[in-house]
Nucleic acid binder design. Structure first.
Lengths: 202, 202
DNA sequence: GAGGTAACCAAGCAAGCGCTAGTGTGAACG
DNA sequence: CGTTCACACTAGCGCTTGCTTGGTTACCTC
């Protein structure tokens, strides 16, 4: 995609860093912790990354890039109906959040730790992702599936989805797809359904 | 409420600390920064607080306590109708988030930095607040205003509301009350309305 | 087999961290 | 007038932080 994350070694290191950043937060993660997790000494870390900030940028780039990829793939491989596409986006978002979890969570919660340059450089990736959402929501609005202000609706939906990382238990009875479907059902103006949203599971 | 935050001096210091914690994050806020903001030297800080952790606990207690107070007041002073109560809760939540903003934001985003004891001690406050939400949502469900799983609906709504701190611009055209009303309209099964949610503002 | 290169290590520096110890202050109180 | 107490100060200790330096190893290439 661009300059960063060339070598496979660096990619693996980035993955490990993401895990630690989620566990401890960026600020509390020391270069020594990162090095130990990677099986090297702290000094060797700076052979792969210019400084700690660059590790964060690499992680966030990876996370956002993946989210964008998964969302695009989901939209491309589903039938062209507003409701289906809405559901597909919600499912893709949660899939990203719970499989490739770490990098995306870092992108959500540590963005402000980026240096201004890195932030500026990466924001176009995030904007591209949000544009996908706005488009899908626009279609749903036009089709009368949902109502409201396009800006507000997309913010609310993304907020509800992003916040799931704070309470969702992957080992619980609900699958990510359950969550996505329930959310879509919640915001849709009822017409056909009513049965499926009430008796979903146990 | 309990042992903490007795003196008015300490209350003022807590307010200043909240502001810095929001601006910089707990980890990046040093005791020297806190002291300077308070107009004293870093050593003097420990006359008021046992350690840095205790400052965080004080801030979070203040924030959660206030949120609970505002929500209770809002519920007490509104008519006893499920839709009105739902709207009142949403408005109260956003009012908390944008007037007493700092302390509540810290409570949301720095909770995991609390020591286990402090977390255990404060979690009952948060639980009490969430219980208010669940009760209001239960009523709305029973009245057929909304549908879905009570647990999921309350999580989604709280997520959407909490996430507003990431994008909402208080100087923009929308008031917090606008946001609250729009959110409630979004999740409600339509029956009466339709007009007001479409043409809210410019 | 000489030269280049990617990956790593040992050692440590300068800065900054949370926090403590010991010492004034001035107002309040008996 | 003497004691107390809340509040603040100075000075700095012991430790951790991100990062640098100079050197070593293993492999690839011509």
């Amino acid at each position: 995609m661009n300059v960063m994350n060339a070598s496979p070694r660096r990619k693996e290191l980035t993955r490990l860093a993401a895990q630690l950043f989620v566990q401890e937060g960026f600020d509390r993660t020391t270069v020594r912790m990162l090095a130990q997790e990677m099986g090297i000494k702290s000094g060797s870390l700076f052979h792969h990354f210019k400084d700690k900030q660059e590790i964060l940028a690499a992680v966030i780039e990876e996370g956002t890039h993946n989210a964008l990829l998964i969302a695009r793939r989901a939209l491309d491989s589903c039938e062209d109906h507003p409701e289906v596409r809405l559901r597909a986006m919600a499912r893709a978002h949660l899939e990203t959040l719970f499989t490739d979890r770490n990098a995306h969570v870092v992108a959500l919660f540590e963005w402000r730790r980026l240096t201004p340059d890195a932030s500026a450089h990466l924001s176009h990736l995030r904007d591209a992702y949000e544009a996908l959402w706005v488009a899908v929501i626009d279609d749903a609005l036009a089709a009368g599936l949902i109502h409201g202000d396009r800006f507000l609706v997309s913010r609310f939906v993304l907020g509800a989805l992003n916040w799931t990382v704070r309470w969702y238990d992957p080992d619980g009875p609900r699958t990510p797809d359950d969550l996505a479907d329930e959310l879509v059902a919640m915001i849709m103006a009822r017409q056909d359904e009513q049965s499926d949203s009430l008796a979903l599971r146990d």
